[in-house]
């Protein structure tokens, strides 16, 4: 039922980015970005701030123009199209709700100016208002809403656009941690699985894993790897992806042979013999498990365990071979 709104849009198709380049003031912001998002698929753009992920979103929206490359929507080249004619909807980080209009007017204004008949636009607005449980706030101003309510209004406005692409720019970053966890499945239910591709920008790997069908990891304007969350976790293509996916961060041990050995903290286990000798330095209690920092000859390691090793306890840690990741020390690539 929820998906019917998102899928009510016109003919949709996949979104393709081909060799996108963007320079600002001589600085390369994006270099050769190739990505494809299928209808109804949710792609998360993940990376640290300044990696270019928001720029990709703005290029898709038409708020910026690429210096090279093409953007195709359902096979049509939209690179030169003005933002208003692309039929994209964007949820901004700040939500960009019109502060002088009530919730209802925020939703109606766009349809009104696009010439949607009065009765029809009221119907549509009522439908998304009830779908997002906003009916009782319809006459409030954005300043009178909580962060979560504002986000829902922004979503509602995006849905009304019946877009061919949904763009979301860190839509959770203004919400507190608990609300984020509550909203993640909701957001996924509303947006994904319809007929429009969804591009979701975030710097939070947990959020990306929770919401996206596939994740594209970016750093310094370059695409590092694109794949399902499971693929990125199980076989990261390079050091950047390895350390960005999975929390706590993967342990990297210098083998001394020009390669690094990566072992995720949750894959370490206490062993009777072999492995490396470690001493427990500190611990963080997580409830079901605890995160220990242990000193080893290769440097400090992170270790997730359900045991209760005391501080200064000395033991040996090992891992199974299937959990080993190896990276070239110079290139950072998986080997």
């Amino acid at each position: 039922m929820i998906n019917t709104i998102a899928s009510g849009a016109g003919p949709t198709g996949d979104l393709r980015l081909e060799a996108l380049n963007r320079r600002i003031a001589g600085r390369q912001i994006l270099a050769g970005i190739d990505l494809a998002v299928a209808p109804g698929e949710c792609l998360a753009l993940l990376g640290p701030s300044g990696c270019g992920k928001t720029t990709i979103l703005r290029l898709i929206a038409g708020l910026e123009r690429p210096d090279g490359g093409r953007i195709l929507l359902a096979g049509r080249d939209i690179t030169a199209l003005s933002p208003g004619r692309r039929q994209v909807a964007m949820v901004f980080q700040s939500y960009a709700l019109y502060p002088h209009l009530s919730v209802e007017r925020n939703l109606l204004l766009g349809m009104e100016l696009r010439g949607v008949p009065r009765q029809r636009r009221q119907q549509e607005a009522d439908r998304v208002l009830s779908m997002l449980q906003l009916e009782s706030f319809r006459s409030r101003r954005p300043s009178e809403l909580s962060g979560g309510q504002r986000q829902r209004v922004a979503l509602a406005r995006a849905l009304l656009r019946r877009p061919q692409v949904f763009l979301l720019d860190e839509p959770m970053s203004n919400l507190d941690a608990q609300l984020r966890e509550e909203l993640r499945p909701q957001l996924r239910a509303i947006l994904c699985g319809g007929e429009a591709p969804v591009v979701y920008v975030t710097h939070d790997q947990k959020e990306a894993m929770g919401i996206a069908d596939r994740i594209a990891v970016l750093q310094n304007g370059r695409l590092q790897q694109c794949g399902t969350p499971q693929e990125l976790y199980a076989s990261p293509a390079n050091l950047v992806v390895a350390s960005f996916i999975g929390r706590p961060q993967i342990n990297l041990l210098d083998r001394g042979d020009g390669s690094l050995l990566g072992i995720r903290p949750e894959h370490l286990q206490a062993v009777e013999e072999g492995g490396v000798a470690v001493r427990v330095l500190s611990r963080e209690w997580h409830g079901a498990s605890q995160q220990l920092t242990v000193a080893s000859p290769h440097g400090d390691l992170r270790w997730i365990t359900s045991g209760a090793e005391p501080i200064n306890d000395q033991l040996r840690l090992g891992w199974q071979l299937q959990h080993e990741h190896r990276f070239d020390l110079d290139t950072g690539l998986r080997c």
Partner: peptide, 15 residues
């Protein structure tokens, strides 16, 4: 004014 307000209006197709 926050620039996103106008950008959103741009995306909504406002002249």
């Amino acid at each position: 004014l926050p620039v996103e307000l106008e950008e959103n209006a741009l995306l909504e197709g406002f002249s």
